[in-house]
């Protein structure tokens, strides 16, 4: 039997409210606004209060998928990663790195955005990286 609350940051809008993840026996059962946070001072909006719901949604993807014969089919990580890397390498060698582009994410963390742009610039070799900041 274990219940704890883990402070983290709301992943919806740019206000940056601090929320507490309520975790009961490893399961995310809800969120609470941080009472001590000088940003949201114990409040959240309707989106923040329901932040846990999409996390545990039935519709979350649980396995990698590759398109085979027209439809997406579940597969192993090994196969998915080899396939993606192989095809990227092939396109890069045929048409140069600038024939590849990537969209990073305003929903992902700083660290992930950093890794993404490094991946694009250093591993692929192009500056074709952007995200939907303008939206």
């Amino acid at each position: 039997m274990r219940y704890e609350t883990i402070p983290t940051t709301c992943s919806y809008c740019g206000c940056g409210c601090e929320v507490l993840l309520q975790v009961l026996d490893g399961e995310l059962i809800g969120v609470l606004p941080s009472k001590a946070s000088p940003i949201n001072e114990g409040s959240l909006c309707i989106k923040g209060w329901n932040l846990h719901e999409f996390v545990v949604s039935e519709r979350r993807l649980r396995k990698p998928m590759l398109r085979k014969g027209g439809s997406l089919v579940e597969t192993s990580w090994e196969e998915a990663l080899d396939e993606v890397a192989g095809r990227l390498a092939k396109i890069k060698s045929e048409s140069g790195p600038d024939s590849i582009a990537a969209l990073s994410s305003a929903k992902c963390t700083n660290e992930e955005n950093y890794l993404m742009q490094r991946f694009v610039r250093a591993a692929i070799g192009t500056n074709n990286v952007d995200h939907c900041a303008r939206l």
């Binding site: 039997m1 219940y3 704890e4 609350t5 402070p7 309520q22 941080s34």
Partner: peptide
């Protein structure tokens, strides 16, 4: 178990 508050990450948080 006892439901209370714990000092964690610089703030008091609910805890069992």
């Amino acid at each position: 178990g006892v439901v209370g508050l714990i000092e964690s990450h610089g703030e008091p948080l609910p805890y069992l």
